[in-house]
């Protein structure tokens, strides 16, 4: 089986005060290795919740989640943390870089959990920054970089431990059109040349265009086309 992500009958809900709200209703989903999937949908649809489950950031109430060969629904939070370190890289809408550290120190963070030596870490960081085209900005702090450059650093950070899966939550949400395009082109590159599997949540149809498959989440259910629009 080449499926990297396999989600079966997953249900997820939250308790807000006294109320229990079910966000995902019995979702089934598979993502093959090497796919670039876009998850779209209106706000409140549950797409971010689904992304969190795929990335191992949260656990489902019911159902089965298998990612990179592991049953995520059966792992404890400590085990999930270890799993994440080995298998996933995250990219966020607001970059979430550490403002006091340089770009290369930021990229180094995931490697601190590995047993690599300082020299090996430096090599991997340099390679990652090279890949995103920011080798010359290694010593700059996030405050000295533009939005697009910061996102590139974040992408380098997501790549540096060589994960199989990249999970992106609105990666271009805070960027202008031109910069968004260059970021998305980079993701496309990583998908096609580095064979990274990418699952991306976005509300921008232009961004979704870069993906190889588009899925629509609405009120906790998946569809292959947005409701009310012909496939």
């Amino acid at each position: 089986m080449t499926a990297l992500v396999s989600i079966k009958q997953v249900v997820k809900g939250y308790t807000r005060g006294k109320q229990r709200v079910e966000v995902l209703h019995s979702i089934d989903l598979t993502v093959e290795r090497g796919e670039f999937v876009a998850l779209m949908g209106p706000s409140g649809s549950g797409k971010t919740t689904l992304l969190n489950l795929i990335g191992g950031l949260d656990r489902p109430d019911r159902g089965e989640i298998v990612v990179a060969g592991e049953r995520l629904d059966q792992l404890s939070s400590g085990q999930l943390a270890k799993w994440r370190a080995r298998n996933v890289g995250f990219i966020f809408q607001f970059y979430n870089l550490l403002p006091v550290l340089t770009a290369e120190r930021n990229v180094e963070v995931p490697l601190l959990l590995t047993k690599l030596s300082a020299a090996e870490r430096r090599r991997n960081v340099a390679a990652a920054l090279e890949l995103v085209g920011l080798a010359d900005r290694a010593k700059h702090k996030p405050g000295e970089l533009s939005g697009g450059q910061q996102q590139r650093v974040a992408i380098a950070r997501a790549l540096v431990a060589d994960p199989t899966l990249l999970v992106c939550d609105e990666p271009t949400g805070d960027l202008d059109r031109e910069t968004s395009e260059s970021i998305l082109k980079l993701l496309e590159l990583l998908n096609e040349h580095q064979h990274k599997t990418i699952v991306m949540v976005t509300h921008d149809p232009r961004a979704a265009h870069f993906a190889s498959r588009r899925l629509y989440v609405d009120k906790g259910s998946l569809a292959n086309a947005p409701l009310g629009v012909a496939a």
Binding site: G78, A81, K82, R84, V88, V109, P110, L113
Partner: peptide, 8 residues
């Protein structure tokens, strides 16, 4: 973010 990257 540290936690997402696997810091326990």
């Amino acid at each position: 973010v540290l936690k997402t990257y696997g810091f326990s």
